Simulated assay, not measured.
Amino acid sequence: MARPRLPRPLLAAAAATAGGAWYATFRRDRDRIRRDPIRPALRRDLAELGGETLGVPAGDGTRLRVRVVGPQDAPTVVLVHGWTCALEFWTLQLQALAGELRIVAYDLRGHGGSAPSSGGDYSIDAYADDLERVLRATVPEGRRATLVGHSLGAMTIAAWAGDRDAAEIRERVAAVGLLSTGLGDLISSSLILPTHGLGDRIEQELGQLVLGAAAPLPKRSTPISSRVVRYVALCGAASPATVAFCDRMVLSCPRDVRANTGSTISRVELHEGLRSLEVPTIVLGGRRDRLTPPVHTERMAEHLPQLLDLVLLDDVGHMAPLEAPEVTTDLIRRLVAAGDAAPSAATPLAAPATAG
């Protein structure tokens, strides 16, 4: 028996109503973004800061886009962004600090202006090796750098540290910041993956499937995409322009890079790498972070031999450098100051510090 069909005029009216509601929502979103006081800073062209753009070859030949800004004789800070982002993620910190610090920011392979992996390798080892190549190319010989990573960027730092002993790290690194990240058990703790209560094996397999999905995303921001990004990566307190900025970054990440890297993230276990970080370290997280909840920040703090501070921020999601830019900027300044006073590889270590 054939199903009854709605009359065409009724279907047309329903479509027109839905389209009108969509457009009205789009206009409201656009107006809120335009009125957001942070919008001009988020839209600023980083070329205005001066500096230079480098093309640094990775070990497998993949070309990495690297930006270096700030006084050449100032302490060097290396910023490593997270999954589906780009070096512009640090725009507010770059603008605030370019006059006082020498800042190196680069695009992870396949992200932003960096080339796709020449061999299709998006493993955590590949990302760690890329960091090594950037450090060799940008940190002056005999000087130490402060490393600050967000999400996958912090995982990259931990993976890089795991391949080195404490003496080498103290010789090359002044201090470390690990922001909005987790170093293992990411699926079991996530507040967005639909896996809980299904059993460990099923949860892990389903979580890997979700994070490694290569589903197509719209090419431009939409009312739906912006709300999904807000829910997953930010929180309700995030400003409209901040959400739109993150939405554009996520949508610009190639789907194969997003999928392959997401699959990598779902399987990492990097806590052992923290034991070599015998330098002042701050860990920071947002209490409303659904991707890497505060349990990860607290667990990392337990493994760090030179913990300077553990910071948990109210009303902040996963994108702390954008949601709490002043706090993040001050954290970088604290790390540089602590690194200046930290012992080198030739100096015996004092007893491990405790959280402040």
Rank of each mutant, 00 (worst) to 15 (best):
L11E: 14
A13N: 08
T17L: 13
T25Y: 10
R28V: 15
D31G: 07
R44D: 13
A47M: 12
E48Y: 15
V56H: 06
G61R: 13
G61W: 15
R63K: 10
R65E: 11
V66S: 10
P71H: 08
D73M: 10
P75S: 06
V80P: 02
G82I: 00
A86D: 11
L92N: 02
L92M: 02
L97Q: 03
L97C: 06
A98Y: 14
A98H: 09
L101G: 05
R102M: 05
V104L: 09
D107W: 05
L108F: 02
L108V: 00
R109Y: 01
G110Q: 02
A115T: 07
P116L: 07
S117G: 08
G120S: 07
Y122F: 05
A137G: 12
V139T: 09
G142Y: 07
A145W: 01
T146E: 04
H150Y: 00
L152V: 06
M155D: 00
R164V: 14
A167S: 06
E171S: 11
V173E: 05
L179K: 02
L179P: 01
L179C: 03
T181Y: 00
I192C: 09
P194H: 08
H196F: 14
L206S: 05
A214R: 03
A215R: 07
P218Y: 00
S225Q: 01
S226M: 15
R227P: 03
A237N: 01
S252A: 11
L270D: 03
L270E: 04
L277Y: 13
V283W: 04
G285L: 05
G286S: 03
R288H: 11
L291P: 03
P293M: 15
P294C: 08
E298S: 15
R299G: 12
M300S: 14
Q306N: 13
L313Y: 01
V316N: 00
G317T: 04
H318C: 08
A324P: 09
E326I: 10
E326A: 06
D330N: 13
V336H: 10
A338L: 09
A346G: 13
